[in-house]
Every structure is written in C-alpha cells, then in structure tokens.
Design a binder for these strands. Structure first.
Length: 350
DNA sequence: AACGCGTGGCC
DNA sequence: TGGCCAAGCGT
C-alpha cells in the first residue's frame, strides 16, 4: 500500500467541511475542539465550541474562571469529566508552563484528559508534528483499507502501526483529519460509500468484498429504572444539591433525587431521603411532572413532586453541597439534561 | 482489560 | 419507536 496520502489529501482539500476549529492554528483552540469532539459528533460540537471560545478565548481566561461556570458552558454536551479535566489542565498550563500551551508530546500527554489520541491530534494539527491520531474513525478506515480482521484489541494495535506507516511527512495534521473525515462521511460503519471513496481502488476490504464487515460493537443491556425528585420550596427559594465530582453528572446541580426500588412509595422515599442526607424536613405535594429520560445504558422514569420545606436547616454531609436558590438562579447553574427540563418547566409557569 | 461516563439524532 | 451510535479518557 503506497501513496494513499496523495488521493486522500486531494479529496480532503475538495470536500472537507468548513468547521470553526479549522480556521485557527492556535493549539489552545485545537485542544478544546479535540476534547469536545471526544465521543461527540461534529454537528453537536460546533455551537458549544463557538460559545466556549467567546467566553474563554485563552487558556488564562479558562484557568481563572470558576469550574461551575465552565460546566455551565458544557451543559448538554455530556461526559462532564472532560470539562473538569479541561479546567484543571488549563490551570496547570498557567501554573506550570507559564501560560504557554505545551507543544511536546510528553508535556501534553501529562495533562488530565489528554490521551494518546488527543495529544497526537493537537500536535499534528496545530504544530505539524508527524504524529498519528487514531480514533474510532481511523480504526475503521485503516482496518478496511488493510482488511484487518480479528480481535478488536489486535486490530487496534495493528492499526496503530499502520497509522504510523501511512502518515506523510507533509501535512500530517490534514492527513489525520482527512482519515477521520473520510470515516465520518464516506467510510461509515453501516454501508460505506465505496463508489465515491477516493481510496476505493486501493482498499483491500473492498477488493475482498469485506467492506460491510465492521467490528461488532458490544452493546450493554438496557436497564429500566425509576427515581423521584423533589422541587422543595422554602418561600421563594428552591432546594438544589450538587452532585459529587466523581461519577455521573459530577459537579452538576440538581433537584434532590433518589432511586426507587420496586414497591417503594415515591413520596415517602423522597421525604426520608431529604431528612437522612440533608436533615431537611419536607411535605411532599402534588406531582409536578413525570417523564422518562435515557442516560448511558439506562432508561429512567422520573417523577417530580412539588414539596414544601417544613423544618430543619440544610446540614451538609458527606453527600455534598446543597443550598437554597432563587428561581432565577437556576439558569446560571449547570444541570443534568432531565433536571434542566424541570427547571425550564418552573421558569415557564412563573 | 473492562467498565463508567451523556446526549439527542437517526432510520 | 427504540436500539444504535459519535474526533476517548481514567481507573
């Protein structure tokens, strides 16, 4: 296999999408885009990237902003550890590198949230370093190009070697992006568009008729769950709780909620939960809303009750931070998607 | 090594 | 309509 760089880069020059992070060579901006793009589709990232850059135009700006505000800009994008790591990394760039974005592999790789892929992507795209950037697209494209089959781990390792071999000295960043762009637009998981693929003539899977074979993704079984949340009023304020930084929705604010087990009486469980975790006494009132949301491999039926504070001050425990908030404050807090739905409901009824 | 970690669009 | 999926990383 020789010379895929030529036709691939020619195709890329002609068909690449006009994306905001392709209009800069600032390593900081490339880095932010790459972190946002982890496990997230391009179309979804564009708006977040532009708002994030307007708010945090430099690594110093990001570093000096409170994490809560950074998370608010990340709300809805998911995988919130990315935002926490991005923020922590920005502070380390300022504190340990004098605000100069690191341009060596080891220094970049040492930042939280920067793995092998991201380090290679940032340095090849922003600095022209001849490093591969192997993401799921590249694995699929090269596995097909070289007709690599077998164990997923084995294919991955083999792809990593091939990615280094096919990488051209000229325009390594564009080459990496071209492989990913091809994987996203043409060499897609389902039925690849071999008829319009610039590499169709040299693709070994195509030659062998294996192009429809794609590494089977092992899907986790979907679990059904139920939970109850309370919008607890004390006068004109509502009770909000901050989720612990580790785990799902870490660092985000939510209306206090608790999982239900089969047979649980939701209103009773909610009351006991608030008493036990925050020492807050409540009276559980009418059901405000009920809906299902999906998160990871779970489908959750959420019932939300309007509640009234009847006694007890918030006693912060190991469960984390909680406080009373004015309705107008909710807009500025980072909340999980289903809780944002509830907050919007409250805002609409006022 | 295998698993946890979000979200909404798609067919 | 619901199962699948997307420019990974940390542990």
């Amino acid at each position: 296999m020789r010379g895929i760089a030529g036709p691939l880069l020619a195709w890329f020059d002609r068909h690449k999408r006009d994306l905001p992070w392709r209009r800069t060579s600032d390593p900081y901006r490339i880095w932010v885009s790459e972190v946002m793009l982890q496990q997230t589709q391009v179309d979804r990232v564009i708006g977040y990237y532009e708002r994030f850059m307007a708010a945090f135009p430099s690594v110093e700006a990001l570093a000096q902003t409170p994490l809560d505000e950074v998370l608010r800009h990340w709300e809805g994008l998911g995988y919130y550890s990315r935002a926490r790591n991005l923020h922590a990394a920005a502070q380390r760039v300022v504190g340990e590198h004098g605000g100069v974005f690191p341009r060596t592999y080891d220094a970049l790789r040492a930042l939280p949230g920067v793995g092998e892929y991201t380090a290679g992507a940032v340095l090849s795209i922003a600095c022209g370093d001849p490093l591969p950037a192997v993401d799921a697209n590249v694995i699929r494209v090269l596995a097909r190009l070289f007709a690599l089959q077998g164990d997923a781990t084995e294919v991955r390792r083999e792809v990593a070697l091939r990615a280094r071999e096919v990488l051209p000295e000229e325009r390594p960043g564009d080459f990496n992006q071209a492989l990913m762009e091809l994987g996203a637009l043409i060499c897609i998981p389902g039925r690849p568009g071999c008829l319009i693929c610039p590499l169709t003539d040299v693709c070994e899977a195509r030659r062998q008729g294996l192009q429809d074979r794609v590494p089977e993704a092992r899907s986790q079984p979907l679990r059904q769950m139920a939970e109850v949340a309370g919008v607890v009023y004390a006068g004109d304020r509502v009770l909000i709780a901050k989720r612990p930084v580790e785990g799902q929705w870490g660092g985000l604010w939510e209306f206090p909620s608790v999982p239900l087990r089969t047979g649980d009486e939701p209103r009773q469980v909610l009351g006991k939960h608030l008493l036990r975790t925050l020492s807050v006494e409540i009276e559980v009132g009418e059901r405000l809303t009920q809906f299902a949301y999906g998160v990871m491999n779970r489908r959750v039926e959420l019932a939300v009750h309007r509640c009234t504070h009847t006694g007890g001050e918030i006693a912060p425990t190991w469960h984390g931070e909680a406080r009373w908030a004015l309705a107008g404050e909710l807009e500025a807090l980072a909340m999980p998607s289903p809780h944002r739905t509830v907050a919007d409901l409250l805002a609409a009824e006022r």
